[in-house]
């Protein structure tokens, strides 16, 4: 059989990172994404839904119809996402930004704690990206949550010390963020590792470019990270990857404008879902381990696609 001559082997392996409270893991693959005829992906790629700690201001109408009954109440919103089949929650603490001043660090920690009690899902928490408040918020959140392993961040080249210090003293994991740049991605991982953060508690966020808005850059950087991890066995690239697909795709014009504005683009909601699904499937093929989304239909479609891919590991 020709197939036997066509198999490749890999020397490296992506590290396994445990999230949530039930021993759930991501990563651990020993082959390029879904090349299951020549390697393993012991843990599923997970699909989550995104929630905010305050009412969103600029979400597309297609999303408002789904969430506006709950989005003033983040805990209710979290429950709804759980019911819709989310496999993790991506919580963005935008309300901790000084511009918004909705939540101080203690209130933010209260909220994350309430959500973690209300739904039994792994939680991924992004702070607002403000230098003055982020470290304090992360510290409070990290200290408060004891019985679930959070994924906290983002830690970037500038703020990594402030972010990693409080996280490293707990059981939580950290998100190593880089701005669409493979060298910085590696550099941030190294800096975080040098602070004594255990390597099996790091997840990378290489910045998600949506379809038509830089997707090809994210795609190629992720492919290069995975080739470095698996073929060159470069330890500082062997971390699971998170992609914030919902957040990036639903702010594009293509996911938002009505057919009145763009008559040849067709149905608005279908278009938004297709933008999200196509971005997600592309990044799955580049090496994503955690994908956060906004629309439950995207979630359902991607889970189906994942099952089909997994059949390749069962002799399919």
């Amino acid at each position: 059989m020709l197939v036997e001559k066509l198999l490749n082997s890999y020397s490296g392996k992506v590290k396994e990172v445990e999230i949530g409270s039930g021993g759930l893991k991501v990563g651990g693959e020993t082959c390029l994404p879904f090349y299951l005829w020549e390697g393993e992906m012991p843990n599923k790629i997970l699909f989550g839904l995104e929630i905010l700690d305050q009412e969103p201001v600029d979400w597309a109408d297609s999303l408002a119809r789904l969430y506006q009954d709950v989005w003033k109440e983040p805990v209710e919103w979290a429950k709804k996402c759980f019911e819709m089949g989310a496999e993790f929650l991506h919580i963005r603490l935008t309300g901790t930004h000084p511009d918004s001043k909705k939540h101080d660090p203690t209130q933010a920690a209260d909220l994350v704690e309430e959500i973690s009690k209300a739904v039994s899902l792994p939680l991924i928490v992004y702070v607002s990206g403000n230098k003055e408040t982020d470290a304090q918020v992360l510290q409070k959140v990290a200290d408060r949550i004891k019985d679930s392993r959070l994924l906290l961040g983002p830690a970037d080249e500038e703020n990594y010390k402030l972010v990693v210090a409080p996280v490293s003293l707990t059981n939580h994991n950290v998100i190593a963020f880089s701005p669409v740049d493979i060298n910085i991605a590696k550099q941030v991982n190294i800096l975080i590792a040098q602070m004594g953060m255990p390597l099996e508690r790091i997840v990378m966020d290489p910045t998600t470019g949506a379809l038509g808005y830089g997707l090809e850059y994210t795609f190629s950087i992720m492919e290069r990270l995975r080739l470095a991890a698996l073929i060159q066995n470069d330890e500082m690239t062997q971390f699971p990857i998170i992609c914030t697909v919902g957040q990036e795709t639903w702010k594009t014009k293509e996911a938002k404008v009505s057919p009145d504005e763009e008559p040849t683009w067709g149905d608005e909601e279908k278009r938004g879902i297709s933008w999200e699904v196509v971005t997600a499937i592309t990044l799955m093929l580049a090496g994503a381990n955690l994908i956060s989304l906004r629309h439950p239909e995207s979630l359902r479609l991607l889970k189906e696609a994942r099952s089909e891919f997994i059949s390749l590991g069962e002799g399919g």
């Binding site: 795609f219 293509e254 067709g266 196509v278």
Partner: peptide, 20 residues
């Protein structure tokens, strides 16, 4: 080739085949 299908696929193709 309804537009909700055609547009994302065409843009995906343009992205992947852009010379890096």
């Amino acid at each position: 080739l309804a537009p909700w299908k055609a547009l994302p696929l065409f843009v995906l193709r343009q992205n992947i085949y852009t010379d890096p």
